[in-house]
Design a protein around this nucleic acid. Structure first.
Length: 408
RNA sequence: GGGGGGAUACCAGAGCGGUCAAAUGGGGCAGACUGUAAAUCUGUUGGCGCAGCCUUCGGAGGUUCGAAUCCUCCUCCCCCCA
């Protein structure tokens, strides 16, 4: 199976600018780029699939460049629904530094900043040198713009595709970039760049996109309770990330293994069989979570996540020492609460319930346990003796939600 | 510029003077069943000192014993005509 066949098997190719690209991809030696705007100081799970493709390309002998849009980040890539809130220049700068460090560490890509070339282009040159290549009719015809016409789009965001096209041209001319890859929402911007380069230089460059990763309902994949799952372990702990992937739906787990891991076809097919024949072993899920956590955070963090998982899900708290707890929960959010408080106050204090009314509901539903012991009495007082070595309690809500608190 | 319709809890959407903390559906959360899966069923989904009280129905005033419901002004959205 050659490289492109493998990509196709993994379901990683959606749009491809020219069939001629396939042969080039198999051959190796291309310099390509992938871009992201510094909207936050860390990547999240939503970015992961396209960055992993870049990693695959790198391993297939191509040279990756990551463009972090220090300039485009100040403009805002149009979303299908509504205008973006502008990010302050300081924020963009801070985010840029965060992303640069993260990507260099995780992926080892060369990082460039489009602000470095924008700063030398004045407005008249911009309109003369680039604006002339963009007929407004052409721009209006792009799906992303068309979807915004009824709700409105500002001139600022409307201009975004010109900037991204300009990036492609700049990198083509100065870095020898001949290929851009991205998620499918970037297709319009990619083709804008390909067209600009063809019209202005006559050169043929390429682009391809990968499909948006979704769950079985077609919803965008990679959010937990509506919140982003960050690739920075200080923002989303390895344990939380592990839990997210180990809980993925059966019907999707094989697709995700193809997208998010470098496991070979034979191994994934074996896991597929295992999932079908002995689903209760959850082998495929565990492999998925393991591969991702080890790749992002290393073996040690993975081991901690597993260890924590075992203690939390098997209610093994009695044998834990204070030190064990500190080691295990080191990266989790540890709240401080006072002893001798009513269970309802504890639940709210630890974040397990958002109000006492809700706390009552959880206790009434038999959903709460402390250090593995079910609590059914609303008037239960959590005294010092319940804190492990006078320090910690582990509050569990439902099957999967755990909270740790330290005695104040 | 003229005419009309609308803004209700996370979302959609009923309510159109008291019985409204506000129907119904979706989503969320929890329980049961399981495999930390899916589907299904059940409960729950403003807050609190919880058989009671407090704050909510775009914003500000007003009428009334009493307003999400009526009146005035303001803000925003949609539709039709020019």
């Amino acid at each position: 199976m050659n490289f492109v066949e493998d990509l196709k098997w993994r379901g990683l190719i959606k749009d491809i600018s020219s069939p001629a690209l396939e042969e080039k991809l198999n051959k190796g030696g291309l310099t390509f780029y992938i871009g992201t705007d510094p909207t936050a100081d860390s990547l999240h799970v939503g970015h992961l699939s396209s960055f992993l493709i870049s990693k695959r390309l790198k391993e297939a002998g191509h040279h990756p460049i990551l463009l972090v849009g220090g300039g485009t980040g100040m403009i805002g890539d149009p979303r299908p629904t509504a205008e973006r809130a502008m990010i302050s220049k300081e924020e963009v700068k801070k985010n840029f530094e965060g992303l640069k460090a993260q990507v260099e560490r995780l992926f080892g890509f060369e990082v460039v900043n489009n602000n470095d070339w924008y700063k030398d282009i004045n407005i008249i040159d911009f309109l003369r040198d680039y604006g002339k290549y963009f007929n407004v009719n052409y721009m209006l015809d792009k799906d992303i713009i068309r979807r915004r016409l009824d709700t409105g789009i500002t001139y600022t965001e409307f201009s975004y595709m010109i900037l991204q096209a300009l990036d492609f041209k700049y990198l083509h001319e100065n870095k020898g970039v001949d290929l851009q890859c991205a998620g499918s929402d970037q297709w319009g911007n990619i083709t804008a760049g390909i067209d600009l380069i063809r019209k202005s230089t006559g050169d043929e460059v390429f682009g391809f996109t990968m499909p948006l990763v979704t769950d079985s309902q077609g919803h965008k994949f990679g959010k937990s309770e509506g919140n982003a799952l960050w690739l920075d372990k200080n923002k989303t702990s390895a344990y939380k990330l592990y839990q997210f992937f180990v809980n993925v739906e059966d019907s999707m787990v094989i697709d995700y293994l193809k997208i998010y891991t470098f496991l070979p076809k034979e191994e994934i097919e074996r896991l597929e069989k295992s999932n079908k024949e002995q689903p209760e072993l959850r082998e495929a899920h565990k492999a998925l979570a393991k591969e991702i956590i080890t790749f992002l955070h290393g073996k040690e963090e993975y081991d901690r996540a597993i260890n924590l998982t075992e203690h939390l899900f098997q209610n093994k708290f009695q044998d834990l020492s204070k030190q064990d707890i500190e080691d295990l929960f080191g990266n989790e959010d540890i709240k401080e609460i006072e002893a001798n408080k009513n269970i309802l106050d504890v639940l709210v204090g630890v974040g397990a319930a958002s109000s006492k009314r809700e706390a009552r509901e959880f206790v009434g539903n038999n959903a709460i346990s402390i250090n593995g012991e079910k609590i059914t009495d609303m008037d239960k007082v959590i005294d010092e003796t319940m804190f492990i070595e006078g320090s910690y309690i582990v509050v569990k809500r439902g099957k999967k939600n755990n909270y740790i608190a330290k005695m104040k």
